[in-house]
Write a protein that binds this DNA or RNA. Structure first.
Lengths: 194, 194
DNA sequence: CGTCTATTTGAATGTACTCAAAAGCGGTGG
DNA sequence: CCACCGCTTTTGAGTACATTCAAATAGACG
């Protein structure tokens, strides 16, 4: 608790806080260690937390009416994970989040987030800038879905997630790209050929 | 100029400003009237503005290497339009923005936006909340692209943009959904049948 | 080594695409 | 008012490509 690893200054890199502020903010984050395979969030739950990923990897995915999984995002170091739609709307989750590589998370409840926004305008501003980047990158992905072939999207994926490509299941990547695992297998085969 | 239509209070609905603040903010917005067919932004330009749409409709789209157009978004009343990726990165636009229904816009330069953020934390916070919603809705769209059929996406589109569906070109909708105009035509035919 | 899971390969199917042509829909001018 | 023109949408036929299903191979781990 008082081992001074100021997670707050790691998460809100660039903002300067006083000692006492740092302590207040730090105490809001609950460190959570999760193992590969653990479920962090399940569809239909009420969403009251966001998770900051310090290490490891999470996967958020949707299960459709036919039981097929569709991966929305992988969350790696310094990313945030949650079902944001449900979180903002105060509705129930449609996403599931599972740990696919042993991870250290910092959990923040909605109440605490609101507290931080209320008391630290610099955090508000920080998050606004983060969201700008996240928003832009979703725009880019949407554009990629419209304009690019599966092969090009796969190359984009490798660029976006250079560190995890080696360690995650093929079919997770496929379900992120919007193709079947068989198709991705063929795409990869194509690529080594050339 | 002094005809008191406080566009600022329309745009930042919910925030309360003093008279003098309102005036300062109002003066940052430059009213721009554009006609159907006019180009607001062209690929490769430096992006220095954002546009608030008071009425009418804009379309932002990408032209790929084969010359095909892909519609990223339609911007209607109370939406913002820009090439946000380029705007945030200070890079050149890859998107084009055209007016598809006579529109009244309020233009805001990057400098003025930064000024507003700096001097009005409430605006920072307001934009953060807007971005949260926008981010969530892009997540939803991405999920839709992965999990839904073109027909379902078309139904979603009609829900998202109930007012413009009647007035915009079929092929614009098609290029937003990620199908050809011929396919969309067939989807519509299917739908009236049942 | 054996079992379980993941990936690859193959063959058949189906869905969306391309290209070409026809039909529909405005608007303009004779 | 009708004829014509340009543009959009629809229809049709053939094709390409990703998918499905089934089977074989490869990898991971006790």
């Amino acid at each position: 608790m008082n081992s001074f690893n100021p997670i707050a200054s790691q998460i809100f890199k660039g903002i300067s806080f006083t000692e006492s502020e740092l302590e207040i903010i730090n105490n809001k984050f609950k460190k959570t260690v999760v193992k590969k395979g653990e479920i962090i969030l399940e569809a239909n739950e009420i969403v009251t937390n966001q998770y900051y990923v310090q290490s490891g990897c999470l996967r958020s995915f949707f299960i459709d009416s036919l039981g097929r999984e569709h991966t929305l995002q992988f969350a790696v170091k310094d990313w945030w994970a949650s079902d944001f739609t449900a979180y903002f709307d105060k509705s129930r989750a449609i996403l599931n989040i599972e740990c696919i590589q042993d991870a250290i998370l910092f959990k923040l409840t909605k109440n605490d987030i609101d507290f931080l926004f209320k008391n630290f305008p610099s955090i508000d501003s920080f998050v606004r800038k983060k969201l700008e980047k996240a928003y832009a990158s979703f725009q880019k992905r949407t554009l990629g879905n419209l304009a690019k072939t599966a092969k090009e999207r796969y190359l984009d994926f490798i660029n976006t997630y250079p560190d995890i490509e080696q360690n995650i299941k093929n079919y997770h990547i496929a379900s992120y790209l919007g193709v079947t695992k068989e198709s991705l297998s063929r795409i990869r085969k194509e690529m080594v050929k050339k």
